[in-house]
Design a protein around this nucleic acid. Structure first.
Lengths: 144, 144
DNA sequence: TTATATTAAGACAATTTTGTCCCAAAAATA
DNA sequence: TATTTTTGGGACAAAATTGTCTTAATATAA
């Protein structure tokens, strides 16, 4: 099951990387470092990071000692926000069969079934922040 | 969220269509009829139906009065089987971030979170059959 | 046996997603 | 001011998915 596009997955891994650096003096992290550490295409990551910057998740700075920085504390950046920004607002709207007319009034055959699945997934995404995701990274037992 | 590929979605809709025809004398249904009724590309549907035929979900017959037919009763064709056949066996195996090393021993940051989501989804797919999905079709309130 | 209706199978085209490359813009520093 | 380092943004290429078309194989029926 590929729930998320590769672009989103890369962004998530990259954000987890940034979040897991304990970076008290708030130094910018370069996309070059991230892409190298995580083996993600530099240019591809740059593009999706631009979107995150435009949407207030990251703060970017050009030039020497530039890079990106999380614009909010890690316990206030939630999976659901990232998904909305990167996958579009109808990520949780469309039904499993993607029929245009499907809705409460005229549900498709899988509508009610899917509504439950989607609902619980959405709740999980709403309550999961970067802070939750980086737990275990520092112990070295998990890799991004 | 596009959990399923278009090919799988088309197949599911088509199977729902076939299942919802009450067809006591077990006449073959042509792919032409299905594709026309559901506005699905005939050739594209044909290809994924071939896979379902090869995997024992459908029975096909060529020539006049030929077509396809469900090989099992509608309450014994489960979503999980269709997904395994059409999306591959690792549909429920891979983690959200798709990291190769991720597993119980060395879980990625989202592993445990995703395991729950995936688990409940899998359970739903396991217990949902075509019989469940066609409920409501006959009333005319739902469209495929 | 011939014509017709149907699925099977594969080549090919279009579209979408993913990935690469180049140059511009901005900022730091010498 | 010139040089270097970095993100921004767009053009382009590659790969994957989706969609179209043509022909073959098979079955029915006239």
């Amino acid at each position: 099951m590929r729930a998320l596009s590769k672009a989103t997955i890369y962004a998530l891994r990259a954000l987890i990387y940034v979040a897991s650096k304990d970076n008290k003096d708030q130094q910018y992290v370069t996309i070059g470092e991230i892409s190298e550490e995580l083996n993600i295409s530099f240019h591809f990551l740059t593009k999706t990071f631009q979107v995150l910057t435009q949407n207030g998740v990251l703060e970017s700075h050009r030039g020497p000692h530039g890079g990106v920085l999380l614009k909010k504390p890690i316990d206030r950046i939630f999976l659901i926000d990232l998904v909305h920004i990167l996958e579009g607002n109808d990520f949780f709207e469309k039904c499993l069969l993607g029929l245009p007319g499907c809705g409460e009034k005229e549900p498709c055959p899988v509508h009610n079934f899917w509504k439950n699945v989607k609902g619980s997934l959405e709740k999980e995404f709403e309550k999961t922040s970067l802070a939750h995701l980086i737990k275990g990274i520092s112990t070295g037992k998990m890799r991004i």
